[in-house]
Each structure stands twice: as C-alpha cells, then as structure tokens.
C-alpha cells in the first residue's frame, strides 16, 4: 500500500484529468482509513477503564466505527488512545510505542491528565504535564475521565478530520490538533443521534427494508 500511495500522486498528476482522479482516490483512501482505525492496547490509569467501557463492554460498541480491532503490537495499530496519566518513566516507552506504529498514525489524548497533567499538575515529582510534550496529539478529549460518549465523539472528530483533511499529495502532513470538547448545549442524545445517522449512512443493512419486513430489532433501533 505504502509504495502505491506514495507513487500515485506523481504518476497521476501529470495525466489529463489525473487531478480529479486523485481526489477520488483520496476520498476512497480516507474513507477506508477513517473506518479502520485500529487502536493500540494502551492504558495507564483510570481513563483506561473508561476506554475499556467504550471498546470492550456491552453498552457501547466501538466496532460500529471500525475501531474495535485492538492490537497488542504497535506495528499493527494506527491509533493510540492515550488513556491515563503519563509519568516520567512511562514517557520514553510511550515515545517508542508511537514511533513503532506504522504511518499514517493518529493520537487521541483522553482525560485531563494527558491534556495538561490533570489533578497531578502541582506538587508532582513525576507526572508529565500533557502527553503532547512527548508525542503529537490529534484530538484532545477533555474529562476526568471522559464518558464513553465523549470518547466516541472524539473518535468521530478524528474520523471527520481524516476524511476532510488528508490527501495523498501531502503524506504525513499533520493538521492542527483539535479539542473535541462537547459543544455548548450538546447532549448525550445528540451524540447518539449522530452515531445513529452515521451507522445508517454507512450501513450494509438497509434499515428501510428491514423495517418494511417488520424486523423488530430495526424498529427498536429506530425508536432508540
């Protein structure tokens, strides 16, 4: 993949109409990348519990957004969710893990600890005040800990960033990091509605057909 995507812009761009084709290829590549973010198994303290709630527990299902293939090896992962306090001894390990991940790689920092040191910012002999002192962060998800919904919202934000902002013309270029704080007035229902719309848009199951056939699960999902 890497060789093709690296060579493609140089090959397509000079051709007549190549630019338009490349834009289409971009869309395809970004769509597949944003829907197959494989996170690394990485969690250092309380926020990790919340991440497990999002990725492994019953109520919230991160696999609906293509991010459930939690990998134990950084070589197979392209997303690192920094969940939990980073201390001085962890910092070099975090850096190593990040560098071992294959490009393109993305970073979500969840919780105030990874954003700024959180409750341990003062009088701590060891807490790193912000994971972005160690590795570049794409999306910050504030909270102590953030609710699973907020983590989902951060993931949706990252997917949006990938779909809209990336191009094979500039591989590896980093966009400005974003703070994925829930906007004023945003409620859990809004996030759930956004997730539902996304699922319906991406679905390989046609809800309308299922509903017409009277599938009760489809009715329940619709009423949810």
């Amino acid at each position: 993949m890497g060789m093709i995507t690296d060579g493609l812009p140089g090959f397509l761009e000079p051709l007549p109409g190549g630019s338009a084709v490349l834009t289409k290829v971009d869309q395809l590549v970004n769509w597949s990348r944003s829907n197959s973010l494989w996170p690394l198994t990485f969690g250092t303290s309380c926020c990790a519990i919340e991440m497990m709630m999002a990725s492994g527990a019953a109520r919230h299902d991160i696999s609906r957004f293509g991010a459930e293939v939690v990998r134990a090896s950084p070589r197979q992962a392209d997303l690192i969710i920094i969940a939990g306090t980073i201390v001085k001894r962890m910092a070099p390990r975090l850096r190593t893990l990040y560098e071992q991940m294959a490009e393109p790689r993305y970073v979500i920092a969840t919780g105030s600890c990874t954003i700024a040191g959180g409750p341990f910012i003062y009088h701590s002999y060891t807490t790193i005040r912000g994971a972005d002192e160690i590795i570049p962060v794409d999306v910050y998800v504030p909270g102590c800990p953030p609710r699973p919904e907020a983590l989902f919202y951060g993931l949706l934000t990252l997917q949006k960033m990938i779909r809209e902002g990336e191009s094979l013309r500039h591989p590896g270029e980093r966009r400005r990091p974003v703070l994925s704080a829930l906007p004023e007035g945003m409620t859990i229902e809004d996030i759930q509605a956004e997730m539902r719309d996304l699922l319906v848009a991406d679905a390989n199951v046609k809800m309308s057909e299922e509903l017409a056939e009277g599938a009760h699960w489809a009715q329940e999902l619709k009423d949810f």
């Binding site: 001085k88 001894r89 910012i121 003062y122 009088h123 701590s124 002999y125 060891t126 005040r129």
Partner: peptide, 24 residues
C-alpha cells in the same frame, strides 16, 4: 523499585522538592 536508580531524594517525604515540581 519504581523510580530510576539514579533518582535523588525520596519523593513522598513532606519536605521533598525538585526542579520538575510546580508550585501551586
């Protein structure tokens, strides 16, 4: 056990201070 072998001082003593710490 937890800190680096060349760490100076014992951080949970009340009078511990180092350059890394921030005062409130």
């Amino acid at each position: 056990l937890f800190l680096e072998d060349d760490w100076e001082g014992f951080p949970l003593r009340k009078d511990y201070e180092d350059d890394f710490m921030l005062e409130r």
